[in-house]
Design a protein around this nucleic acid. Structure first.
Length: 588
RNA sequence: GCCCUUGUAGCUCAAUUGGACAGAGCACCGGACUUCUAAUCCGAUGGUUGUGGGUUCAAGUCCCACCAAGGGCGCCA
């Protein structure tokens, strides 16, 4: 909002500075950083410093910056739409006129509804690959971050104006799958999962690992089974297909609960052969070195690039026995993405930070091989989810917190609270609230953290519904809805407030006005954290308003104005919750 | 050995990308429900931003060194 005014003012300032013979520097507007200040600000330190360097004048920079700010303030006077202009400590602050500003912000939100803060279509298509779960294994809190972070990124990018393709890449083949099949065929033949599919699949996998650990000689049988898979033995392939589907069914249940959809599935198993073709091509081009059967096929990336210092090191692209590796498949997967969507402008991989080098290697190898889209591949790295005391989540260590357990616990905990707080709700409504609150509480901490920082999971924090957490934001939404319901009727028409706005109202409008810019920033930086933080701050501003500014009992003019502000706040909170994939409940 | 990430209040995290007084939430202490839902609000306590240099008008943010934690380094995914 107010981009036009900002651009015009910047032009006027630049003209003025030029007329004073001052250096030409871009005018960068920022929000005045003090809570409750409505306006934009820019500083003149850079200008003063540059001038001092060019002319050799000995005036202290901050003093000179203040002089310039004062001159500019005098020159501008008070522009239309503003009510105060001041020069302070080298900064030029322009305060919006409160009445106009509030009216404009509120009306914009109410007119745009759920499209509030939606960016202009950018004409760019972005694929986001995230939540790469392994079939035939458990789905635990550790896997949750990629799913939630990736989903949040998709929502933000889409709202910011990009066309987004949500891709999943399940690990449906590999040693872990063969181990599982071996265990199933030998000890569980004919069994089928009933409920809790993913748990059952995970249990069988853990059992297989245990058996092999206790009796290492059994690994021969697993290897033999792998060979049968490689020969495409129909019995093995069919069983693999059937059991793989069980896992996928289980994943789908959880994605549905979490409201995380996908447009496109790529499966690990689809890329073994295609990957081998690319490797053959790399060998033909002299990029990869083939040392089979004594050694593997690899790319000495640093050598190829002529780097003196090691950076990309060596990427093994095929095993010495000719079977495919993760890297083999990744080469083919990237090609497939751009074959399916030739006009993709970016392909993001939301994968944990441990694979940073791997992706750098794969991307660089594709670039060397001459694929024109190689520079559009991008690894969005995030840190792992740990348990208190820096304990790694691991099925082998028995430290897993299964996703289904987490969801169940969070929801039942939320249900208890609803029953306490709002016993009059119907049973059905209570369940819906509990789901919204429980799942929101799980999602929020995964989003409200810098991507590169470890999330420590512990039950206490995860199920703590107080303070900076999703329920806080949801509650603000509920309160706003409650006021509107009590007030009844339709919203009063747009008016310019004729009374002096109070501080909580000013802060609240300010928060709402920041949203469009923050959406763009979060999209550009690929950081849902910024949305999560803003969501909390907006909710806090609303709660503050709620306690200090009566709406329904206020005199008619104030009441009308505040009702519109409440409706706009509710809408703005809904937009931010939607960007995080968190449900906005009607009651709590 | 080389490379990457992180280090901010007792704990968990922010800080408009180099700007104005480093802000929240938990926890602790003290207050506020016959008034729009107290899953809330108000107040108090709490800081040499790991250490030492440097660049800059301006450094939590950039550069160098050191310390600490985590991660990655040719046939795991």
């Amino acid at each position: 909002m107010f981009e036009r005014e900002q651009t015009e003012l910047a032009a006027r300032i630049k003209d003025f500075l030029a007329s004073q013979g001052l250096p030409d520097l871009p005018v960068a507007w920022v929000w005045i950083p003090f809570a409750g200040s409505w306006g934009i600000s820019t500083s003149f330190f850079q200008l003063a410093a540059l001038e001092a360097r060019q002319s050799g004048l000995k005036v202290p920079v901050h003093q000179r910056a203040q002089q310039i700010a004062e001159q500019v303030a005098d020159h501008l006077g008070i522009p239309a739409g503003f009510e105060k202009v001041e020069a302070v400590k080298g900064y030029l602050n322009l305060y919006f006129s409160t009445a106009d500003y509030a009216r404009q912000v509120i009306s914009t939100v109410l007119a745009q509804g759920s499209d509030f803060a939606r960016g202009e279509p950018k004409g760019q298509k972005i694929m986001v690959e995230f939540s790469q779960p392994n079939t035939h294994k458990a789905f635990h809190v550790g896997h949750l971050r990629s799913a939630i972070l990736g989903d949040g990124l998709c929502r933000i990018l889409s709202h910011a104006g990009y066309e987004v393709i949500r891709a999943n890449y399940p690990g449906d083949i590999g040693l872990h799958v063969i181990k599982w099949l071996w265990n199933y065929m030998k000890y569980h033949a004919g069994e089928r999962p009933d409920r809790d599919i993913t748990r059952w699949m995970g249990d069988l996998y853990a059992e297989a690992s245990r058996r092999l650990e206790e009796n290492p000689e059994l690994e021969q049988e697993v290897r033999a089974l792998y060979a049968r898979w490689d020969r495409k033995d129909p019995q093995v392939v069919n069983l693999w297909k059937e059991t793989r589907q069980w896992s996928l069914d289980g994943f789908n249940e959880m994605y549905a609960l979490l409201d995380i959809p996908f447009d496109r599935y790529y499966f690990n198993s689809m890329f073994e052969e295609a990957g081998k073709e690319i490797v053959a091509d790399l060998i033909r081009k002299g990029i990869a070195i083939d040392e089979r059967p004594d050694g593997a096929v690899y790319v000495k990336i640093d050598d190829v690039l002529g780097l003196k210092q090691e950076k990309y090191r060596v990427l093994v692209v095929l095993r010495s026995d000719g079977t495919a590796l993760y890297a083999t498949e990744d080469l083919a997967l990237a090609r497939q993405k751009f074959s399916d969507y030739p006009d993709l402008s970016r392909a993001l991989y939301v994968v944990d930070v441990r694979q940073s080098l791997h992706f750098q290697q794969v991307f660089k190898t594709l670039e060397i091989a001459g694929y024109p889209w190689a520079d559009k591949l991008e690894h969005v790295a995030y840190e792992l989810v740990n348990l208190p005391g820096n304990v790694v989540v691991s099925s082998r260590e028995g430290t897993v917190v299964l996703l289904e357990d987490l969801i169940r616990e969070a929801v039942s905990r939320a249900l208890k609270v609803v029953q306490e707080k709002n016993p009059d709700l119907s049973e059905e409504a209570k369940q819906a609230v509990a789901r919204a609150v429980g799942i929101g509480a799980i999602k929020y901490p995964m989003l409200a953290r810098e991507n590169g920082k470890i999330v420590t999971f512990d039950w206490e924090t995860a199920l703590d519904f107080d303070g900076q957490a999703a329920p806080y934001i949801q509650y603000a939404y509920v309160r706003a809805g409650s006021i509107l319901r009590k007030a009844g009727g339709s919203l009063p028409p747009e008016t310019t407030p004729q009374y002096a706005l109070t501080q909580p109202e000013i802060v609240l409008v300010d928060m709402i006005a920041r949203i469009p810019k923050e959406v763009q920033r979060a999209a550009a930086d690929l950081k849902p954290l910024q949305i999560a933080t803003l969501g909390f701050e907006l909710a806090r501003a609303f709660n503050d308003f709620y306690t200090q500014c009566p709406v329904i009992s206020a005199e008619p003019q104030v009441r009308d104005q505040r009702l519109r502000l409440v409706a706009a706040s509710r809408q703005a909170i809904a937009v931010l919750l939607a960007l995080m994939g968190i449900t906005a409940p009607e009651a709590m």
